[in-house]
Amino acid sequence: MSTTCLFYLPLCLWLFIAFALLALTQFNHRRACGMTDLPPSRTRLIRLMAGVMLLFALVISIAHESSGFGFLLWVGLLSLCACAVALLLGWYPRLLAPLARLMAKPST
């Protein structure tokens, strides 16, 4: 149980944030959070950062588990965490508003 709390849950959160960052670079989802669009350079930077976060999660999974388990875990959690972001944006988009604001902060 402690391993679950110390590794899998933070990993889920990490992937969730990465997907939330990706989603919140899209205008439709930003609007749903009550935010305006991001400048193109910021969008590119955030998407790159989210991509690196996703890849880093793969590295961490493989390092923590074996290569086989780590890869399968990463693939499975990618789907679930992306789904969680989509459902949250569908039902309670305002919950992601703080993150959306944070993404725009330095330029506003």
Binding site: F19, Q26, N28, V85, A86, G90
Partner: peptide, 9 residues
Amino acid sequence: FAEFFTFRP
């Protein structure tokens, strides 16, 4: 890609 996270209940 544009509707990657789209779910409109």
